[in-house]
Nucleic acid binder design. Structure first.
Lengths: 325, 325
DNA sequence: CTGAAAGCGCTTACAG
DNA sequence: CTGAAAGCGCTTACAG
């Protein structure tokens, strides 16, 4: 039915193995033969059969993207955005991407194990960095190539990961506001878990001390949140910033006239309603690209241990809008 | 290296073909043999090699999910949500999902063609319904199984699609507000393109006329939007509702005390800041499930034309919150 | 109910 | 630089 390597070989008057070599552009084939074979492929409309290639070569040419098992996280625009950029970069390298999701961590692990044991994928990109995760543990134990997007809280030396410099992000946030003459700056969060929070807050705190400014950690609670003398506030992410702004308004204060709001991630939420939020863009697209690049290296390296434990820090930039004065 | 069907056969003392039949639970194999073989698989830790299965059977056991080529759409929570539910339903049926994305329609089509010609997938779920789309055209021409999420504006008779009843949604919106004694109800949109808008608006209009109420179509423009006597407003989606509420506030009016706001889709945007938005939930999870079910039927049917052109309407429900009085 | 055999469409040492 | 052959791990008529 479909045209195979054999058909092409017959048409071009060569052996099927020669066609195979032409496909991968083997240097041992003469240009003359290559041209002839390529012409045959063209006129017959040949396309490779992925399954046959995988079976014969032992490589799937596909990678798996693992989403966090928590439901609500999946609504974050981050995931769709990084998936797009991963897929794009993968396509440019002739890699297919398959996905793994699950309501529970058990479901997720089951799917990941199956994908790998059936040899549907050569490796994984993990999109969450929670601590002591069984899925990640499995990948490490079985020595399966993977790269993490985010910073793991443990075994940083055994894992290849790509992330922003969250501590620097915290520092830069303070620096930016301080340069605008803010002297009382607090940090607002709705979670104190995770390396992202820890590092951003640490950076915030260090820079605050260094510049001799005042401020503290404010835990956001919808019914009970108030600023108390702050002229500016740094918020963990854009949706939270939206809520913070509303709370500030309810206090009878205006953003940015009375208090400035600076946030992170630069997601859709940042430019939904006014004041549009000034927010650090963490370059999600680049994060995805780099993840694919690194994973490819891991998959294709013979000595996997050699390039393990690399960390890639992707630069960020500030998207200035209306919420800071 | 990995354990194969041969190893299992040797261990159980049967022919490899018997093992293959046990795997697919063929009725022609005796229970005694099944038990014996399954035990062997268990103790040896056997898992199927997907590539070999695909090559031998001619079926990939995978489906492709095609995302719209437009960048900003991908930030909508809808896509991540439906992808999750598609993947979940697929996993329950031992189907893998691969994705196709692209900045341009050309890129997208290229990827789709490649996926299919390499036999990486058996069929597709298309997540957008714009008119005269080359990707969809390709699928139809080549007679490739696919189902559309949304309502196509042409060739409705040739395409299997799943969607909500958008016209009914428009009617129900009016009915709900009318029952709360609203008499002046307008419909707000920021786009007049697409079947979704058309049908919701048509439903709105019919019901408005039927109940002898007043109201009109309001085009949202950030700098220039005002309500003019409306006691309630129906908005195309949640993010837009957020903007509409802000505009209403700027007019010195309160939601819901002065004007009620009712919206569609029940996305994350609906419960971000107060007033939380009363919104119709369009049951995205179910949409995804049904899409997978129908696609499976298409793929496995011998006479594809027989079940073509089915439409599946998924029910919706109203999520009541704070924006309607 | 089960076995033996051919075949799916590639890749890759091995020869020459 | 190219060919002939074996093999990747399954499935599936065909026999019996």
């Amino acid at each position: 039915m479909a045209v195979t390597i054999k058909d092409v070989a017959a048409f071009a008057g060569v052996n099927p193995s020669t066609v195979s070599r032409v496909i991968k552009d083997s240097p041992s084939i003469s240009d003359k033969t290559k041209i002839k074979v390529r012409k045959a492929m063209e006129t017959l409309g040949y396309t490779q059969n992925a399954a046959a290639k995988i079976l014969a070569s032992g490589k799937s040419g596909a990678i798996g993207v693992i989403f966090p098992p928590i439901e609500n996280k999946q609504s974050r625009p981050f995931f769709m955005k990084i998936l797009s950029s991963i897929n794009e970069e993968a396509r440019n390298n002739d890699i297919t991407v398959a996905i793994a999701t699950g309501h529970s961590i058990e479901e997720l692990e089951k799917q990941v194990r199956l994908m790998y044991s059936e040899k549907r994928v050569d490796g994984f990109i993990v999109l969450y960095a929670g601590q002591s995760d069984p899925v990640r543990q499995y990948l490490i134990t079985e020595n399966i190539p993977f790269v993490l997007v985010g910073t793991p809280s443990e075994m940083q030396n055994e894992i290849t990961y790509v992330d922003n410099d969250n501590k620097l992000l915290g520092k830069e946030a303070v620096a930016y506001l301080a340069d605008k003459d803010h002297k009382h700056i607090s940090f607002v969060t709705d979670t104190e878990e995770g390396v992202v929070f820890e590092e951003r807050y640490m950076g915030f705190h260090e820079e605050l001390v260094k510049r001799d400014l005042v401020g503290k950690l404010l835990h956001f609670d919808e019914n009970n949140f108030k600023v108390d003398g702050e002229s500016a506030v740094i918020v963990m992410d854009d949706p939270l910033a939206l809520m913070v702004i509303q709370s500030i308004n309810k206090q009878g204060l205006n953003v940015p006239d009375d208090v400035s709001v600076l946030s992170f991630n630069n997601s859709v939420f940042a430019s939904l309603i006014h004041p549009y939020i000034t927010s650090f863009d963490i370059n999600v697209a680049r994060l995805g690209e780099v993840a694919v690049e690194k994973l490819s290296e891991l998959i294709n390296s013979d000595d996997k241990s050699k390039i393990y434990s690399e960390k890639i820090i992707v630069p960020f930039y500030l998207k200035e809008r209306e919420s800071v004065k």
